[in-house]
Deep mutational scan, measured.
Amino acid sequence: MGFKLLSKLLVYLTASIMAIASPLAFSVDSSGEYPTVSEIPVGEVRLYQIADGVWSHIATQSFDGAVYPSNGLIVRDGDELLLIDTAWGAKNTAALLAEIEKQIGLPVTRAVSTHFHDDRVGGVDVLRAAGVATYASPSTRRLAEVEGNEIPTHSLEGLSSSGDAVRFGPVELFYPGAAHSTDNLIVYVPSASVLYGGCAIYELSRTSAGNVADADLAEWPTSIERIQQHYPEAQFVIPGHGLPGGLDLLKHTTNVVKAHTNRSVVE
């Protein structure tokens, strides 16, 4: 069995187990497998329904001669939608809004960016022009300005110390501490036991640490421990890039980060 097929099978099995364990909360999309990078042309966006009122959005972007996937989250909030992270750029984010209108038909009224990198804030200006209120932590807003990236308009308070959590509509926002970046936030959907790890969490097929220019490698494993301790009931975990899975993604990420750190020390 090929690795790609095995990865998709694991996603399907995880979703099936969740649907059985929580039949009222989960209505997993039966329309197909989780979209992969090879299936999404740059400039297009796919939506994948995880649970009743919960979707991931998947886009792709060219970077350094390669094409990478990027995940975000959409959560229903009454007759409105909360968006977590842009679709990595203005063109993708405009396509995301169009796809949401086509498939869901509810307005996106608020959006949260989970850290300051372009795959999370690139497209904020498109959201703002569409009347979406954009939010991020003060740290993310400051770092985005320093980096020359787009800056969300509103500040999220109460997320300055490791372990801080605040309720934001249908989700809980959690600051686990520094990891992929010093400002990275985690998003949890309690009604569906869905954990969105953003770039602080890796997919299972990833074996290298990737972009760690703004990471705190020493603190990252401790931050992941905080996530595990705060959300032990999480059933569906979405990484910032690639295929979702279960809580095993947290341990896998820790292993990859520690291996990278150990290699760096040896070198």
Rank of each mutant, 00 (worst) to 15 (best):
L195A: 06
L249V: 10
N71T: 06
R263F: 01
R226F: 02
Y202L: 08
D125R: 09
I58Y: 05
P239Q: 03
S62D: 12
K91S: 11
S56G: 07
L13F: 05
S264C: 09
A59S: 11
T93R: 00
V166T: 07
T207H: 14
Y231C: 14
V126R: 13
V132I: 01
L82A: 14
T109L: 11
G122F: 14
L97M: 01
I84M: 14
R76E: 05
T60H: 04
Q229K: 05
R226E: 09
T14L: 12
G242Y: 10
S181Q: 06
V237D: 03
D77Q: 07
L156I: 14
S193C: 10
S181G: 12
N262L: 05
G89K: 12
K251P: 14
V124T: 15
G148Y: 01
Y34K: 10
A165S: 10
S113P: 03
V187G: 12
Q228V: 08
S30C: 11
A133N: 15
V146E: 11
G123Y: 00
A209P: 14
L217I: 03
M18Q: 05
V132Y: 13
A165L: 11
A213Q: 14
D164G: 10
A130E: 00
E150Q: 15
S16A: 07
L81E: 00
V28N: 02
R226S: 07
G43S: 11
A15W: 02
A21M: 05
A59R: 12
A179T: 02
S193V: 08
R110G: 11
I20R: 10
I227N: 01
V194K: 07
D29L: 06
D77Y: 09
Y135L: 15
G148K: 02
E33V: 07
S155T: 09
G169P: 09
T114H: 00
H57F: 08
P190L: 08
L249F: 15
D119F: 00
V42S: 05
H252V: 06
T86V: 14
I186F: 02
E99C: 02
Y231F: 02
G65V: 06
V189P: 00
L13V: 07
I104M: 09
D214L: 09
P107E: 09
V189S: 07
P244D: 06
G169F: 13
E145M: 03
S162T: 10
V108N: 00
W88L: 00
G43T: 09
A21E: 10
Q49E: 03
P190W: 04
T140M: 15
D29M: 04
V42F: 05
Q229C: 14
L195W: 00
R76A: 04
P35A: 09
P23C: 11
Q229W: 12
G169E: 08
L6H: 15
Y34H: 14
H117N: 00
H57C: 02
S31V: 15
A15N: 14
Q61A: 09
A25L: 13
R206Y: 15
R128G: 11
Y12A: 12
S155V: 14
E101M: 01
V11Y: 13
Q235D: 07
S223I: 10
C199T: 01
L24R: 04
E145N: 07
S56N: 15
P221Q: 12
T182L: 05
G78I: 13
G32P: 14
N149D: 13
E150W: 15
R206A: 09
L9D: 04
E101P: 03
T109S: 08
A66G: 05
P176F: 04
A213M: 10
T60S: 11
S264K: 03
A178C: 06
A51S: 09
V108T: 12
T134S: 02
S7F: 13
I17N: 04
T222E: 10
T86S: 14
P107H: 00
G131C: 01
T60A: 04
V28W: 03
G177I: 15
G65F: 14
A215Y: 14
E99I: 12
L83Y: 00
S70H: 02
L73T: 03
